[in-house]
């Protein structure tokens, strides 16, 4: 099951004693601050987790996969995520869905 905002808020409520409203708001503004920083063109570095960077992509030729028609993919700015050492190490230890 995927982890969602509702579950994140539930844990803040249980573990930190924020009330439900505060916990829900906190999760919301946490992600909003990260979005706002990226929107403003800044990098976001969360040590122990990873870095969110921005990349500027030039226009390149693309194709409508359905019709085969050639259409340019316009220049754009995109977000990339680079996991930090700690996150990488902890995920690497995961042995896959078949083992317990």
């Amino acid at each position: 099951m995927a982890l969602t905002k509702a579950e994140l808020a539930e844990r803040l409520f249980q573990d930190l004693g924020l009330n439900k409203r505060e916990a829900k708001d906190f999760v919301e503004i946490f992600f909003e601050e990260i979005r706002a920083a990226l929107e403003a063109g800044g990098q976001v570095k969360l040590s122990g987790f990873g870095n969110f960077n921005l990349r500027t992509k030039r226009q390149r030729p693309g194709r409508n996969p359905k019709t085969g028609e050639e259409i340019p993919i316009t220049a754009r700015r995109v977000v990339t995520f680079h996991p930090g050492q700690k996150l990488k190490a902890r995920v690497e230890a995961y042995s896959g869905p078949n083992e317990t």
Partner: peptide, 17 residues
Amino acid sequence: ALLEQLVQALASGDRVE
């Protein structure tokens, strides 16, 4: 606590949405 939850979910093979 939020970041730790994200890490834990991924470390146990879960997605975060």
